[in-house]
């Protein structure tokens, strides 16, 4: 595989998985962008990290697709923040993506195991 091809694969993988990551994090409750980015970083133990310039365009894209919904919430003594939560459709997409991801990973695992067995 050439260098360019592997870069494209890398980008697509990241894009696809990034959506899954965000949707998963919003599944339990609504969160604001900073919280999402921190959670990705901490839960992946620093392996995955989104900076502002890639996180927010992604959030806006998901919002435009109707999978998540953001709204400004003002809490006493705090600056108002934009919280995102999963929509009904987002939940469906998450379920679908999750199972696709799992079978994808399982397949990769099976293949890589066979290779090294």
């Amino acid at each position: 595989m050439s260098h360019i091809h592997s870069r494209i694969l890398d980008r697509e993988l990241k894009k696809g998985s990034a959506e899954l990551l965000i949707l998963s994090l919003l599944e339990a409750r609504q969160r604001h962008g900073y919280e999402v980015s921190k959670l990705i970083e901490s839960r992946s133990e620093g392996v995955l990290k989104f900076n502002v310039a890639s996180l927010y365009p992604l959030l806006y894209r998901l919002e435009k697709r109707g999978w998540i919904e953001g709204r400004w919430v003002e809490k006493a003594g705090q600056r108002r923040r934009r919280y995102y939560r999963l929509t009904k459709e987002g939940k469906k997409v998450l379920a679908a993506q999750r199972s696709t991801w799992e079978s994808f990973v399982a397949a990769i695992n099976r293949i890589t195991r066979t290779e090294h067995a």
């Binding site: 900076n51 502002v52 310039a53 890639s54 927010y56 365009p57 992604l58 806006y60 435009k64």
Partner: peptide, 16 residues
Amino acid sequence: AELSEQQFLARELRNI
């Protein structure tokens, strides 16, 4: 650095 290089944000947002 979170904002990346000058054009990155605009490029990402353009289609959205």
